[in-house]
Amino acid sequence: MAERERLAISRPKEGACGNTGTWRVFRPVVDKEKCNSCGMCAMYCPDGVIDENYEIDLVFCKGCGICATECPKKAIEMVREGNTTSQ
């Protein structure tokens, strides 16, 4: 075992690369009135931070804007982050 523990093995962990939401310049805001639950945003989010209820995890969302571009209902708006980082 001692031998094995010297191997460079990493273990899975949420936040392994920090809270990537702090990278954001623009934040996606979903208008639930316009959303028809088509699922495109969740399918296209490279980082899988949109859940089955189309809630966006802002702790990790990097603000790439793909979801807003691809939403067929134009239900997602990218809004500039303020000076105080929320979340």
Partner: peptide, 17 residues
């Protein structure tokens, strides 16, 4: 999902998708 939130890939990385 088999990738935990999140990797350190650039925002909008299609390889990650």
């Amino acid at each position: 999902e088999y990738i935990c939130k999140c990797t350190s890939a650039c925002a909008g990385c299609s390889s990650s998708l």
